[in-house]
């Protein structure tokens, strides 16, 4: 035979005592209870629920991640930009250096190369043997680029070479071919 039990103390949860011990004996100050409850409730009203807190934290984290990523991308792009700029400058410099390379070709088409790559002010002298001529090449920083070719008697047979390149305008190369 199956039996069921009911706890009397739990059963009496549904009972309302309107007869015994009502409004008596308690020395508890109701105003203090009220104060405490209202203070807690008022505090709780403005409190954010845990779920909302988590969502806000997640959103903040996502935003932060986004910012960091954006910054990283921006940084990378800037780096690329700087690298690209540097490369462009390097390229330009190389190009300029190429432009600054002056080639002197002799009568047979042999290249006698005189190079001023990075715009440094250099002066050098070298001796070349060109058909009995000793070519003394002097480079200085004077305003005009002049080439002088003199014959056996010392007469100038070829006048000058004015450098029309803008970026080499600050250079003056004087080539002096002296009779050996």
């Amino acid at each position: 035979m199956e039996s069921k039990t009911v706890k009397i103390s739990e059963l009496l949860d549904d009972y309302t005592d309107n007869e015994f011990f009502i409004d008596e004996e308690s020395e508890v100050n109701i105003d203090k209870i009220k104060e405490k409850v209202i203070a807690k409730v008022s505090g709780k009203k403005t409190k954010i629920k845990p779920v909302a807190k988590i969502m806000i934290a997640a959103a903040a984290a996502a935003a932060l991640t986004g910012m960091v990523s954006a910054a990283a991308v921006h940084g990378t792009m800037e780096t690329y930009s700087v690298i690209a700029e540097e490369k462009a400058v390097q390229h330009k410099t190389d190009a300029s250096a190429d432009d600054l390379t002056e080639k002197l070709v002799d009568e047979d088409g042999n290249v006698i190369e005189v190079q001023e790559a990075d715009g440094d002010k250099t002066q050098y002298e070298e001796t070349l043997e060109i058909d009995g001529y000793d070519a003394g090449i002097v480079t200085d920083d004077s305003a005009d680029v002049t080439e002088k070719l003199t014959d056996e008697d010392g007469n100038v047979i070829e006048a000058q070479k004015a450098d029309s390149e803008a970026d080499s305008s600050d250079k003056t190369d004087t080539f002096r071919f002296e009779n050996e």
């Binding site: 009502i22 308690s26 020395e27 508890v28 109701i30």
Partner: peptide, 29 residues
């Protein structure tokens, strides 16, 4: 609600706890 039933609630608790006003106030709240 507290004005109306505060006394009742604290009386029930106080009776079960046999006084102990501090606990009674805490539990009533």
């Amino acid at each position: 609600l507290i004005d109306r039933y505060g006394k009742y609630v604290s009386s029930v608790i106080s009776r079960i706890l046999r006084g102990r006003n501090e606990d009674c106030r805490e539990l009533s709240a």
